[in-house]
Write a protein that binds this DNA or RNA. Structure first.
Length: 340
RNA sequence: AGGCCCGUAGCUCAACUGGCAGAGCAGCCGACUCCAAAUCGGCAGGUUGGGGGUUCGAAUCCUCCCGGGCCUGCCA
């Protein structure tokens, strides 16, 4: 059998790619929603994880902040358990093949398809300046994935549309220039959406403000404060047994961090209508702090220099693969050869 | 390349003919609450995009610069 992703000769296992924007420090929504899954995947597949700094520049940004966030993101990911011996962790801009491939792919990307991307519409909404880069963002994302001929892409619901576009791009390239890329499929993990404690109808996000997220490296006091002030409701509703968004969010966090017996006890209290939220919150905070403790400890031990070294090494490995893909792609589309 | 419009608190905007830079939301503190939310009370928030000029006095008028939007033209 000849696999499409055969540029990695060392194994027959599927190739996974995922990119993370360097948004600064990771929060527990990122952790439980995605990163924890990445940690699991690295033992099962050949995984490439990129900190996508070129994506971050499509909206207004501060250079110093981006620089710091990129490194911070690397440190947070390592603290969460990504292991450079098991996966390839690198910074996107260190592998220029991404942007080169993006340009090439833009030639087989439909303008109409891009216009239909809802994320572009959402992110551009209300912005006084909308860059071209924001518009072509999904093409770079396709390049990220296809540069490694990845066949599986673990992403959230909101990114499914972009992966669909990647498939269309891959398909069009293949049919025009010959079979080159696999059509990557979405690796949907159990869809975990941690909500903002302050506004539990919205997904946890840094951009909403400090009250709306809990960083994985947050101090114990701060975690307790944010859980304590988390929005709840008037009290349990045993009649419908339906939790309000805020309470459901607290239960979700408890489920993710506490022993089953503890969780069941609170569920039972809720069902019987005798649950007081104060003790629930205390338990959630306790177990959350406990869960994050090893991450915090690991994070505290990481040295910047050592992390930089890991990222450099990751980029070296990634680049070797991406370069082979680009050689093949250039050959197929008929560029470069004449002057070699 | 030419024309028109805009820039005020984190956000949305107000400030007469040139006369003390303000409100709502967000934020912070407190009361209430099992904890919260809502509500109520309080606090804080500014190089009015930047430089120069006119004036007793400029967010307001003039000028240059920066940033942004719209229209027309030119080139490919």
């Amino acid at each position: 059998m000849i696999g499409f992703g055969s540029s990695d000769v060392s194994s027959m296992t599927a190739i996974v790619f995922s990119g993370l924007q360097p948004t600064g420090t990771l929060h527990i929504g990122n952790y439980f929603g995605a990163v924890q899954n990445f940690v699991k995947l690295q033992t099962q597949y050949k995984c490439y994880y990129a900190i996508v700094d070129y994506h971050a520049i499509t909206v207004e940004h501060d250079p110093e902040e981006l620089r710091r966030n990129t490194l911070e993101m690397g440190m947070d990911l390592l603290a969460c358990g990504l292991d450079p011996r098991q996966c390839v962790l690198f910074v996107q801009s260190q592998v220029p093949e991404h942007t080169e491939l993006a340009w090439i792919l833009s030639a087989v990307t439909s303008y109409g398809d891009l216009q239909r991307m809802t994320q572009f519409k959402e992110k551009g909404e209300g912005q006084e300046f909308v860059s071209c880069g924001l518009f072509t963002y999904p093409v770079l994302q396709a390049a990220d994935i296809l540069a490694y001929k990845a066949s599986k892409v673990p992403v959230g619901e909101d990114q499914v549309q972009h992966i669909e576009l990647t498939r269309r791009i891959a398909r069009r390239f293949n049919s025009r220039f010959g079979e080159t890329f696999p059509e990557p499929e979405v690796l949907l993990s159990e869809a975990l959406r941690i909500m903002s404690p302050a506004e539990p109808t919205r997904k946890m996000s840094k951009s909403l403000g400090p009250k709306h997220y809990i960083a994985i490296t947050e101090s114990e006091d701060s975690i307790r404060e944010k859980i304590k002030t988390a929005v709840t409701d008037i009290g349990p509703r045993p009649d419908t047994n339906e939790k309000s968004p805020g309470v459901a969010n607290l239960f979700l966090l408890l489920k993710l961090t506490a022993p089953k017996e503890i969780y069941d006890q609170f569920e039972d209290d809720y069902a019987r209508g005798v649950l007081k939220y104060e003790p629930l919150k205390r338990a959630v905070a306790d177990y959350l702090v406990k869960t994050l403790e090893p991450i915090r400890a690991r994070r505290a031990q990481l040295k910047e220099a050592e992390v930089r070294e890991i990222l450099i090494e990751g980029a070296r490995t990634a680049r070797a693969v991406a370069r082979r893909t680009l050689e093949e792609v250039r050959e197929r589309i008929g560029v470069g050869r004449v002057v070699l």
